[in-house]
Write a protein that binds this DNA or RNA. Structure first.
Lengths: 154, 154
DNA sequence: TAGCATAATTGTAATGATTATAAATAACAT
DNA sequence: ATGTTATTTATAATCATTACAATTATGCTA
């Protein structure tokens, strides 16, 4: 059905020894079946999934699961810094359990997301601006390697 | 009502000698009252406004103006490369008539957007990745200079 | 271990941004 | 002028997300 666990070399960065359980505990989030399932999905599939994708993936296994729960859960994760939200996709928010600063690439053909290394900031105008910067999102768009081989979007 | 034309030094970059008319012509967009008004607003106020903001600003002067027209117009501008869309705001798309690559900063207190210089890419993993990069959006979030003075959000 | 308090989940309805559609209007050319 | 095409408009539809209120699960205390 979905083979979305697309990886480029940068996606290996995050060690997957971390269990969903430990990840929740580490962020002071009380574990529950649903929360564990969502976190486990994020840690296993690095597709930076949307709520929709997570729901479709987990619903067969947890038939009682509600989409609202996914929203609640992800907002909780966000609040506790256990995930980061990506707005690179104009239609829906995508989530990433890897909160370390790194860039993202969205293929405008297949719409998949890929991790990329974060560029360095060489300009120092930024520091001298009087603005306090909390976070830097780098969103690249273009055509991924697979799509460049001409395989059309089906 | 709205004094949104907030500028930092970087906002001066784009020369405003360009008229809305010339901007449209330069991008092969047939001018109309509505299109000129929208482009003129974008060129005059560098707040990176949302559809809502543009509508509220222009509606008093052009009472027949429809919000749909603003959507149509901005999508047309996008299609012809006359503006760029910013997804730094999770709630609504913001627009920028300056298509030159530059970064953006969103204050998480007042939610205003500011232009910033684009950081340099020093990592070359990116070029060697086999991905064709079309565009690079850099979205910074934090607290702007004004909000750091503690003035609470009213 | 029963009973109670709190937290988590769920279904449904509401919101709000954006798009689809089709009618009305304006611009344009013959 | 008149017909053709482009543009604008109002209304309805869509879709992601949130609000809300009821239900269920969990944890704690006696």
């Amino acid at each position: 059905m979905h083979s979305l666990n697309i990886c480029n070399d940068y996606n290996i960065r995050m060690k997957r020894e971390i269990t969903a359980f430990d990840q929740l505990i580490a962020h002071n989030i009380r574990p529950s079946v649903q929360r564990l399932a969502v976190m486990d999905y994020l840690l296993t599939y690095r597709s930076h999934p949307s709520v929709e994708e997570i729901y479709n993936a987990l619903h067969p296994t947890i038939p009682t699961l509600s989409k609202t729960t996914i929203y609640n859960t992800l907002n909780l994760f966000l609040e506790y810094g256990a995930v980061q939200a990506l707005t690179i996709d104009e239609k829906q928010v995508r989530y990433d359990a890897d909160c370390a600063e790194h860039a993202h690439f969205r293929c405008s053909k297949c719409n998949k997301l890929f991790d990329f290394p974060q560029p360095e900031f060489t300009e120092d105008k930024i520091v001298s601006s009087g603005f306090k910067i909390d976070k830097c999102h780098v969103y690249l768009t273009g055509i991924c390697d697979v799509c460049q081989l001409g395989r059309p979007l089906e």
